[in-house]
Design a protein around this nucleic acid. Structure first.
Lengths: 145, 145
DNA sequence: GTAAGTGCAAAGCCTTTGCCACCGT
DNA sequence: ACGGTGGCAAAGGCTTTGCACTTAC
């Protein structure tokens, strides 16, 4: 074969190396899957995508890996109200979520003014801002109240 | 005795009646506990507080009750990242949360400027704002990085 | 070579539920 | 009286973990 899962490279892989993580085949695959994802997959979904590339990965490893990645700041865990945790790479930059209450669709957005305001609020309350989590739940303005 | 748990009244009790809920002794107690709470108790904590008033309440009832209250819009469920759901009465009005990442302490805050900005963002993205959820995670600025 | 990572299955934690007795309206 | 409600304990869903084997450095 020309390319095995041991050759998979990805932006996240580099970040893992920087953190000094031992890069096993499984972690490469999971890092790759996460790098490719432009949505917010949960563990089960990550597992599904990972075993396509390497069927020998177990879901326990996915759990262990996302936990480690999260602790190292490579991933962020999200809770959109469904019992399961969902993940996204932190290198997407700081952003917020707007969720369509009717369709469940999640849109990401950025807003400098908001960044600054949240920073200011944290300071005013005597804290160093570590991270924020903001979700706007909205209904598309097409219909009446 | 002068007062049993069947006599307990509370602001939430009235809201429950409005919704047509059958008000059992257990529900009165839970409504009372929730009305008194100025924090964000989880089910276990609600249970602890409830059994002080009526030791015959079971935790299953607490789970069932918060679920019903939530469906009726009397309560809001929150997920601050600790596996357990936490609850607060909706009549506290719109507010946001600042969470101390070290102690887990939760502070509520209000901010008109933030209200307006979120409203503006939703509009700009073509949505009618239904609700928002914002948590600032911070570290108290007492120590260095 | 060695410490760390992985698989598997069992265990854990929070939450829900089946069943039957009980109680509010 | 009737239908919703509560208690208990068992079941469920997601996540973690103990153990023995494998692997990256």
């Amino acid at each position: 074969m020309t390319k095995t899962h041991d050759d998979i490279d990805s932006p996240l892989l580099e970040r893992c190396r920087e953190k000094g993580l031992k890069m096993t085949g499984q972690r490469r695959v999971i890092a790759y899957v996460l790098s490719e994802a432009d949505d917010h997959p949960d563990v089960e979904e990550l597992y599904r995508r990972a075993i396509v590339i390497d069927p020998k990965i177990s879901v326990a490893t996915v759990y262990r890996t996302v936990r480690i990645f999260e602790e190292r700041g490579i991933l962020q865990r999200r809770n959109f109200g469904t019992g399961r945790a969902r993940y996204e790479a932190t290198d997407h930059g700081q952003h917020y979520h707007l969720i369509d209450v009717e369709s469940g669709k999640v849109e990401e957005f950025h807003d400098k003014e908001l960044d600054a305001l949240l920073q200011k609020i944290a300071e005013r309350m005597g804290y160093d801002l570590v991270t924020t989590r903001l979700e706007i739940y909205g209904r598309t303005g097409k219909a009446r109240a």
